[in-house]
Amino acid sequence: MSPSFHIPYILPTALLALALVLKFPTFLRASRDPDVRATTLLLTWATAVLVVITPVNIERLNVLTGIPNIAAPWAYSFLTAFCATGLTMIMRWREEPSERRRRRMRRVYWIYAGVIAALWLTFLLADVPTARIYDLDTYYAGTPWMREHILLYIAAHMVSSLVAVSMLWKWFPEVADRWLKSGVVFLQLGFASGLVFDAAKLAAISARWSGRDWDVLSTQAAPPFALLQAAFVALGFLVPQAGPFLQKWIRDQRDYRRLAPLWRAVRVLAPAAAQARFGWWAPLDLRLVQRQQRIHDALRVLTPYFDAALHRRARQAAQAVHGSRKAEGIAGAVTIRAAIDAHRSGGPPPAHPHAPHLGPVVSNHIEDIAAALHHPHTVEDVRRRAVTTESANSHA
């Protein structure tokens, strides 16, 4: 690998770091949730691996510590922790909570903790005085203890990838949720990329043992698959959690904006009780609930002022031009605007005998009314025609 290969590290590292930053508030709110903890750890280990293996950071670690090749045990330890966390997360997804599942997960953690301890031990026992940034695995492929150090991390990584691919392959047909199914696909791609990485590394090391130079497999062919694995696996664990959240956020954002005209129309009325004040930093779903509640409170205040005759004429006028689907919303918008004007005049509610019965009808079409208020000219046109019809009937 040459310095020109530094750039590909930036994108997956930045994506993983961004995912970790976005996940951190959830971790603070729900740090006791095992799935949240595991996802945060997975992103942490994956980000740490990519940060450490970036060539410029390998060189910095060598200089700062004064220990040649110290980046190797750090990077391989983070990679091993990443493998363990990935395996246990797949177990969490596939199996219902049970004592058997807990035992299996603890066994995975202990085995990979032992691998990490062995990685540091073999590195401390190895004699690796020459710093190698791009070709450490093949350069020291025949060095006692460092050879074991390299084979250990590759073996641990390969086993975890094989087990993960096998579990995911068996589980895929059983998955019904589309977000979870997408996550499984990303995970399969990720762990399959990891197997390609391992195969390229082992081929290059085996070639060194037999006196051939296949270093290009280790220095140029393998690294892109390591980057792909980190990105795909991170996506695999994030999509099933972020997908439903993003879907709900988009739906809430749409509803929040759709209700804006109706909310602006009724907020001229004094609320029945003191309203809690939420800033734009408050969760969107909380602000949506408050907006919906404010609208319903205002409609209860306006119910005695609803003019059933006006509502009927407005619906008939709207049906003639816009069809029955939009007519109910437009008629409701006309009725609410008239009720607001009557309420603000300060007098008692006029005698509208059917107003109490009209209240639920209007409340059940809030979204249609809000949609109609997005087109105030249409509402005003229907209101004028409804009033004209009333005048014509009264003269007749």
Rank of each mutant, 00 (worst) to 15 (best):
P3E: 07
P3H: 13
I7L: 15
P12F: 05
P12Q: 05
T13Q: 00
L16M: 04
A17S: 14
V21H: 12
K23T: 09
F24M: 14
F27A: 05
A30R: 10
S31Y: 12
R32Y: 11
P34L: 04
A38W: 05
A38D: 13
T54V: 11
I58V: 08
E59Y: 07
E59V: 06
G66L: 05
A75E: 04
Y76A: 12
T80Y: 07
T85E: 11
G86Q: 00
R92P: 00
W93F: 13
R94P: 09
E95P: 02
E96Y: 01
R101H: 06
R103L: 10
M105K: 01
V108I: 14
I111E: 00
I111Y: 07
A113S: 12
A118T: 12
L121M: 08
L124G: 12
A126G: 09
V128M: 13
D135R: 00
D137G: 11
Y139Q: 09
T143I: 01
P144K: 05
E148F: 09
I150D: 10
I150E: 05
L151G: 08
L152F: 06
Y153I: 06
A156G: 10
H157Q: 15
V159R: 06
V165G: 02
S166V: 12
M167S: 08
W169C: 11
W169A: 14
K170H: 13
F172G: 01
A176D: 15
D177V: 05
R178W: 06
R178S: 11
R178F: 11
L180G: 08
K181A: 14
K181T: 06
K181Y: 08
L187E: 04
G190R: 02
G190I: 00
A192H: 07
L195K: 01
V196K: 09
V196M: 12
L202V: 06
L202G: 00
A203M: 11
A203N: 03
A204D: 12
S206E: 10
R208D: 08
D213I: 02
L217T: 06
T219E: 06
T219V: 04
A226Q: 14
A230S: 04
A230D: 04
A234P: 07
L238D: 07
G243N: 05
W249H: 14
D255K: 11
W263A: 15
R264C: 03
V266E: 03
P271D: 11
P271E: 10
A272W: 13
A274D: 15
G279Q: 06
W280D: 12
W280S: 15
L284Y: 01
D285E: 14
I295N: 11
L299W: 06
V301E: 10
F306I: 10
L310F: 04
R312D: 15
Q316W: 09
Q316M: 13
A320S: 12
G323C: 02
S324V: 11
K326G: 00
A327K: 03
A327E: 01
E328Q: 12
A331K: 03
A331P: 03
I336M: 05
G346V: 12
P348L: 13
P350Q: 09
P356S: 02
H357T: 01
P360E: 00
S363Y: 04
S363A: 15
N364L: 10
E367D: 13
I369T: 11
H374D: 10
H374F: 03
H377C: 08
V379H: 04
D381V: 03
V382G: 00
R383M: 07
R384S: 03
T389Q: 13
A392G: 13
N393P: 13
N393W: 10
